[in-house]
Design a protein around this nucleic acid. Structure first.
Lengths: 169, 169
DNA sequence: AGAAATTATTTTAAGCTTAAAACAAATCTG
DNA sequence: CAGATTTGTTTTAAGCTTAAAATAATTTCT
């Protein structure tokens, strides 16, 4: 309980006793900015070029990776959105003929969602252009940059998951 | 129009003629996952701990950095959301007493928004905890990781801005 | 100064999103 | 096997978000 020296940082300014985390905050804000920027651009291009919304595109992208369809629960986990959200989104995509609901043969609670043939066709056309847009948006990064960023984001994902998972303990 | 050799990659598999950009796509999806994961957690904690929504918090965070207030246009640029979106958000924050609208002395079109005293007080309390949550979520990264990630995201931001800016040419 | 273009904000219509509650079917457990 | 819990989905209420059109004030350009 003796007097304690006020810690000084490299620039010899007194720092707050409970260490501040402005650096992490800036990192988070920058991450958010990147995502918002790219997402907004992709949203706009999807609308202008294909008259489709981003959520619709995202949903179809998940289904495209699952030839045998997926349940709503699986979809909601994959897309990281709430269950209730999907109900409406699926309704609209069924109405526009892009996807179909099928009763699950094994579980009478569940419905399996899958792309219709025309839905898959439309999605593939959009996905091909979408991939070019993304490549363009990330075009300022070198191959090494992209590898490094991929690795660091992987680490970030793990870090966040651990922090989220561990909170209930 | 002679026959053309199909290029082979390092693992000796045929690759698509128009080069594919799946790597950039994976990078984008991972970036999006990180943001969605962290954003969802922060949203939930703000609600549980302070009964406040993330957009409200974000708006107050911007105002906190502008002691003399900001116009709606400035706010919408900073927050990267549409103008129309802010109208409603501001209405609700005015109704709850967190912010006030003041007529701009120089421009009769504009309104200046600023935090009320109690709004600033409430925000500061939330911001202090929020900063700890963020530090916790990024806790799995070393100081070097954070520096590297910061730099790479800076480069990503520039890359995206350039791609967006340059599209109209 | 007056017309034209720009800027600041609001309104509108549609769709997205969430949390919480409700419901139904499947699984677990004593 | 019956009651309790979990799981899959929908509903509800509230708020968020966008794009596009409308309105109003300022600035620009003859």
């Amino acid at each position: 309980m003796d007097d304690q020296a006020i810690p000084l940082d490299a620039e010899t300014k007194a720092v707050e006793m409970p260490e501040d985390h402005r650096e992490e905050l800036r990192l988070w804000l920058r991450l958010l900015t990147c995502t918002t920027l790219i997402e907004g651009e992709v949203r706009g291009r999807l609308r202008e070029r294909f008259d489709v919304t981003l959520p619709r595109f995202d949903l179809m992208a998940q289904l495209d990776k699952a030839p045998d369809g997926m349940t709503l629960s699986d979809l909601s986990k994959r897309m990281m959105v709430s269950n209730g959200n999907l109900t409406g989104l699926v309704d609209r995509l069924v109405a526009s003929g892009h996807i179909v609901r099928t009763a699950s043969p094994t579980d009478r609670r569940a419905t399996v969602i899958s792309l219709t043939e025309s839905g898959r066709g439309e999605f593939c056309a959009m996905a091909a252009e979408h991939e070019l847009w993304i490549a363009d948006l990330f075009g300022g990064l070198t191959e090494k940059d992209r590898g490094d960023l991929m690795r660091l984001l992987g680490k970030t994902k793990l870090s966040a998951r651990r922090a989220i998972q561990g909170e209930g303990q």
